[in-house]
Design a protein around this nucleic acid. Structure first.
Lengths: 226, 226
DNA sequence: GATCGCCTTATTGTATACAAAATGGATCAG
DNA sequence: CTGATCCATTTTGTATACAATAAGGCGATC
């Protein structure tokens, strides 16, 4: 990857994710370029990427704004993830090698360990969780499926809330991974699909519950600015 | 949309779709810029878009090539379309208004008329077919679903083969649309989902059958060049 | 007082020049 | 003859300058 273009991408993304920029805020190329310390060229490049991830929306006259994600939109994203990751798991079940199963077990072992520490090490949880899901996606063997899902998985809003998971939810996630591994060992596509789909849907409800608190925080922050 | 950037996009896309460029051919920015009559800036823009549609692949060193679509890849794309358009139909079934149902009927009426002429007016068929599916997608009311599907629907390789549909296949498509409308009138999401999913899957097999002939043509053309 | 149209200004689109990086080949050593 | 290293050339990345276009305000007119 290129240097300046990635700096711009990460910087702008972080500004949106962290809440430094609020939904609906206008995104001028010039201003962002200065903020990122690069020229407009890589900024435009980065904005094109972020637009693809629906973090930025463009008006009909090509002006850019921070996208506003309603709870419905987020629900839609989870629904699609559940469906597509379910498909990935289904495909993976009949293709996965013993070696890859061992890798999944290793990832989930570390997830279990991260959960066991007090307080739970959420960063390790997220990282190993990411590896776990990515490997399944790779084993599924569909470049297109991977492309589609990557735009859904990288949702930073969701990332942010993972830190609000309760110990019970972390444990549940760990157990579901274990069950998924069992389905892979049996080579049962339907079972794998069912577990994965449920896994994502449960994550949505965990998110949704936590979100009420976040919504209040966001409202506070907005008020503070005004 | 912007002028030069769209010219570049359409031109490059057409070169790939028409077969003027073959899978694996390198795509230099400079050369394409000259070919399109614009500078490298809009070409880069266009290439970023085409990369998102997986029509172009990039090497690790950022060089671009025409993507090679195996029959498996195309099958994957259809599988995803079947799933996602099925979801769209399912969602649409419980939201669609009588006015939109009338629109769908109007579109399909014109599809029937296009099929009835001899020879069948494939351009009208494709256009009304596009409107039909787009309306359902809009009624489904998920921006994200729409975004994901648009990258799948615009597959030019598929477009090209629509011209090879037999009269029987055109008729079948028309009938399936009718059945879908019936499902919408009853407000039956599961029925709508089933029909739509089958509709797309049938299209894949029609494509797959026609593709054998095309594969031979492509092979001939490649040999001719060498 | 409201509305329409123009004009100023801000923002995006495009071109070009230059910098960085990579590829391929040539040359030289083993 | 094989391999490796270095250089020339090609290709991509970035910056900047300029052109086109849209937004917002100002004034004129009804």
């Amino acid at each position: 990857m290129s240097r300046a273009s990635d700096i711009a991408y990460e910087t702008i993304r972080e500004m949106i994710v962290s809440g430094e920029l609020l939904p609906g805020d206008p995104l001028g190329e010039e201003a962002l370029a200065e903020k990122c310390g690069v020229s407009r060229t890589p900024v435009r490049d980065a904005m094109r990427r972020l637009e693809g991830e629906l973090l930025i929306r463009r008006s009909e006259s090509q002006r850019s704004f921070v996208a506003d994600w309603s709870l419905d939109d987020i629900g839609d994203a989870f629904e699609l993830r559940a469906m597509l990751e379910g498909l990935a798991a289904q495909r993976a079940a009949s293709r996965i090698s013993p070696a890859d199963i061992r890798k999944l077990e290793a990832y989930n072992k570390r997830i279990g360990e991260a959960n066991a520490s007090t307080p739970a090490d959420v960063d390790v949880f997220l990282e190993e969780n990411r590896k776990f899901h990515t490997l399944i996606l790779d084993v599924a063997g569909s470049a297109r499926l991977k492309t589609l899902l990557q735009t859904l998985i990288e949702q930073p809003i969701i990332w942010r809330t993972a830190h609000h998971y309760s110990p019970h939810e972390l444990l549940r996630s760990y157990q579901e991974h274990d069950e998924l591994i069992a389905a892979f060992k049996r080579g049962d596509p339907a079972w794998a699909e069912a577990i994965m789909s449920g896994h994502i849907r449960r994550a949505f409800h965990a998110y949704s519950d936590a979100h009420h608190g976040l919504a209040i925080l966001d409202a506070e922050r907005s008020k503070k600015r005004a």
